[in-house]
Design a protein around this nucleic acid. Sequence first.
DNA 1: AACTCGGTCAACCGCGCGCCT
DNA 2: AAGGCGCGCGGTTGACCGAGT
Length: 325
Amino acid sequence: MGRGRAPCCDKTKVKRGPWSPAEDLRLMSFIQKQGHSNWRSLPKEAGLLRCGKSCRLRWINYLRPDVKRGNFTPEEEETIIKLHNSFGNKWSKIASHLPGRTDNEIKNVWNTYLKKRLSRKTEASDSPMDYSDSPSSPSSSITSNEDQIMEMTDQTVQEPNAKKSNEKPEFLKVMSKHPSDEPKETASYDSPTSSYASNFCNVSGAIVTRPEERKGSTTSDEKNEIPFESDIDFWNLLDTLDPYHTTNSEKNEDENSNAAAKLDDENECKEWLRYLENELGLTGGNGSDNLPNTEHTTSLHQEINFEPEVVYFPIWPSSPQNFGI
DNA sequence: AACTCGGTCAACCGCGCGCCT
DNA sequence: AAGGCGCGCGGTTGACCGAGT
């Protein structure tokens, strides 16, 4: 009877898997400006080839400004244990009692070690609370001065994916990289695992600290200024960023700006795009069978006017390491 | 140095609830 | 009233990484 709503996203035409830097930026930018009243329509409006569900998950679990990254403190762990006693596997309910923590994160922590720790504890019930294998206790110790300082510092957020990223994020440079800029680094984008995102996605302006919590030590150079601006102009700027031009401008800044070189680069970019269009059959000829969404993406491209690299590189062609992350 | 194994965690999948038509 | 869909939630998967051999 009821006509119901329009069908959900066509799953054959949406990208799946790890999010690229460009996608993250686009999603963040869009939500900062437009909010997320409708997840289903959001991907299209934002120019993302993603399912709305995927966008929602990405935002809630990772990109949200208030999401608290990093290790759980012993206090938080205690809270989780108590709440789990009360609510069971109601992760969202537990998460609501832990500001900044997501249900997914809590679920992971519970399944990966809290559960084990508890079972061990019940086996040896006479032993005191043991945090020796807690993620919040790198190298089996939570008493490191730096760690304690970090846990006590509101403006400091610990980065759980430290093992996947070693350098200071340069989130604007992420957008600026062009495939042709790094021809030698064409390795598949095999390990995004969002480490780049976690490096810049605590957009509250806090300093993200990467404590190398499990193995390494924490050093001051691992603190990263997050280039976040709450000013909507910043997000407008992001939206208008042409990565290629950004590359050029940055490059030119670094190299004391050479107009001729810039022109060359732009031409190179255009050539690159033309090459890709030809390769992918996007230029007039028959579309590639391997690209079922070609028609969709091109029309979408025209419709919402989003940058071609997002279409051509739904998976960013360079690995996060290539961005100096 | 090469390989295996286990831990971690982001992302996907599927289901249920409640709203919409 | 009934069917369809969006959203949120919990369970599961698979890739990555470091430690151990």
